[in-house]
């Protein structure tokens, strides 16, 4: 089963003191290598800071575009991992080692495991 780990924190890499950011990035490299070795890794990346976010809504055919993220909270989405885990307990064990969890939090979201969505969309399920 795949889980999306959404990493939220008050400070993004870009706004951290350089030495701390370097250390934090090292921790991420170590974590990523270890979950690749253990077979939990599926995908990951960092998101550019919320300053670069744009929110779009369409109402009655009108596109409205606003600056900023959908929710203004202190802890902003800063990156994600997609992991493969046997069950929630294993996913929690992996997610608890994400460096961002020590300064912010990680939201674990199970990704639908059935073929219905992709087949309904006419897309092959990639396994």
């Amino acid at each position: 089963m795949k889980y999306l780990c959404l990493i939220r924190a008050e400070s993004a890499m870009e706004t951290m003191p350089a030495a701390f950011a370097a250390q934090h990035f090292d921790a991420y490299r170590e974590f990523a290598q270890s979950i690749r070795a253990s077979g939990h890794f599926v995908d990951c990346n960092r998101l550019l800071p919320v300053d670069a976010a744009t929110t779009i809504r369409v109402r009655q055919g009108q596109v409205s575009v606003t600056d900023g993220p959908y929710v203004e909270t202190k802890e902003q989405l800063g990156g994600y991992f997609v992991i493969e885990a046997r069950d929630l307990n294993e996913a929690i064990q992996v997610a608890a080692r994400i460096p961002g969890a020590t300064i912010g939090c990680v939201e674990l979201r199970p990704i639908a495991d059935d073929a219905r969505t992709l087949s309904a969309l006419g897309l092959q399920k990639s396994r």
Binding site: A112, D113, D114, A115, R116, S119, A120, K125
Partner: peptide
């Protein structure tokens, strides 16, 4: 039960 059945197209 359907949701647990991977790859089975029954809907």
């Amino acid at each position: 039960l359907i949701e647990g059945l991977e790859g089975a197209e029954i809907e």
